[in-house]
Computed example of a mutant assay.
Amino acid sequence: MVLAAVVAAIGAVTPAASAAPAPRAACPEQPGVLRCLTTYTPGAARALGPAGWGGDDLASAYGLPASAGSDTVVGISIAFDAPNLEADLAAYRAQYGLPPCTTANGCFRKVNQQGAAAPVPEANFGWTLESTLDVSMVSAACPSCRILVVEGNSPGFADLAETADTAVRLGAKVVSNSYGARENGAALAYASHYRHPGVTVVASSGDTGFTAASYPAVLASTIAVGGTSLARDPDSPRGWAERAWTYGGSGCSAYIAKPKWQRDAHCGKRTVADVSAAAEDIAIHYADAGGWLPVNGTSASAPFIAGLIGRSGHAGAIGPADVYAKAGSFTDVTAGHNDPAGAGKKCGGDYLCVAGPGYDAPTGVGVPNGLAGF
């Protein structure tokens, strides 16, 4: 009887003891600063090969052309230094048969927020993970694009605004911003830094579902990118299926006037997002975590869209209005919601948090269908 009781007790505690760790925000939310929009599971990295959707999967899912495309400079606005970024990028590109992108061949450049090679900011595990995801997604979308990473001293509004300005000054024609904060008056004071004539600005819509709109995605000058969950579907002509990612950001601005090119009915001001792409279970190589690591976040979808814009050769000529004008060139996402609390209850089943035919806030006008929308 005693032995049976011991066995029963061990059985009772074993599931809890062996439960997989929960996903963790790479950059926990802190007051007064922006945060990167990526989550990962501690201990999930592996050395022997990718886990999650890789560059070849994304090329297939979005019908990317075989031709390399433009050598557009894509700027990455980011906080803190990523010491091993070039090496992690090399591992990713080699895995998926993409041409080398290095400092030596002029494809890769990393600078501080003033645009100099040194001194670099301090390193930060979460933001380094973010940087690694950003350059990987630009590479998957545009193997021929040149990548310019501008590292801010901190995730403060002023420092990251300067990184965006520096990217433009150094030649970026599209700038990706994989970070955000709840829109507020303090943040909006830096809006002009995300508005540059002849440059396309892209930003992640957020990773907490339907909530207050995220800055800088909410700005009318920015293409706001939401997230989807991608799955293989051998029964469809496309071979893939997508639904709104449960945690992808959407929201109705409390500050930004309704742009004339946005005509949804239930938000009187700027609605986020505009377009979307895969944001769940994305494979990257991040040596600091132990190798190949699956990650989630609209921090994946935004630089992917930025890369596609660069690949199109139309970077700088494409803005949010053009996305809506070409809505028919995107694949509409009509399933899913971004209400983690439960199936669209948070917005009353409305398009602001539930995907459906035509425009909806979680996925915008849809996901890329080749480069036709850009």
Rank of each mutant, 00 (worst) to 15 (best):
A213H: 03
L230D: 03
D264C: 11
S139E: 03
G171Y: 11
N338Y: 12
G32K: 13
D274Y: 04
C347H: 03
T228M: 08
I76L: 12
N177A: 08
S60K: 05
K260M: 06
S229A: 15
S131T: 01
A217I: 10
D235F: 07
L371D: 00
G370W: 02
E183Q: 12
I223N: 00
E29F: 07
L48M: 09
G319R: 03
A300S: 13
I147S: 05
G106H: 06
Q113Y: 14
D56V: 10
G52F: 10
S67L: 12
E280C: 05
G358Q: 15
R232I: 12
P100M: 13
G226E: 06
P294A: 14
N296T: 11
S70F: 02
Y351I: 10
Y194V: 05
A203M: 07
N153Y: 06
K258G: 06
G206L: 12
L352T: 14
C142F: 01
A117C: 07
S236W: 09
S253R: 00
G63P: 01
S329Q: 13
A51R: 09
A22R: 15
V323M: 14
A327W: 05
G310Q: 04
S253P: 00
W245D: 05
T163D: 11
A317L: 10
S70P: 00
A231F: 12
Q30V: 15
C347T: 08
R238N: 15
A257Y: 08
K346D: 14
W240S: 01
A278V: 07
A116Y: 11
Y351P: 00
A26R: 03
H193N: 13
P99R: 03
D350N: 15
P28G: 11
L133R: 03
A164E: 02
A140Q: 00
G291T: 10
G54C: 09
A66Y: 04
V135C: 02
I318C: 02
G319F: 09
T298L: 08
R109W: 11
G307K: 00
A212L: 13
L133N: 03
A44W: 03
S192M: 12
S214D: 14
G171A: 09
T271H: 04
I282M: 13
D332R: 10
A17D: 04
F157I: 07
T331R: 13
T222L: 00
T102N: 04
I147Y: 02
F157S: 00
S77G: 11
G349S: 13
D339R: 07
V150D: 06
A212V: 15
W53H: 04
A341P: 00
S329Y: 06
S236I: 10
I284G: 00
V175F: 06
I305Y: 09
G310P: 01
R182S: 14
S214Q: 14
T72I: 04
S154E: 12
T200Q: 06
L219V: 10
A158I: 07
L34V: 15
F125V: 13
L64C: 07
V135R: 01
V74Q: 01
A90H: 04
I318Y: 00
E86Y: 08
A44R: 01
G226L: 04
W240A: 01
D288K: 05
L98V: 04
F210G: 00
D56N: 15
A66N: 11
A257K: 09
A161K: 02
A12Y: 10
A4F: 07
V2N: 06
A161S: 15
R35D: 14
L170Q: 15
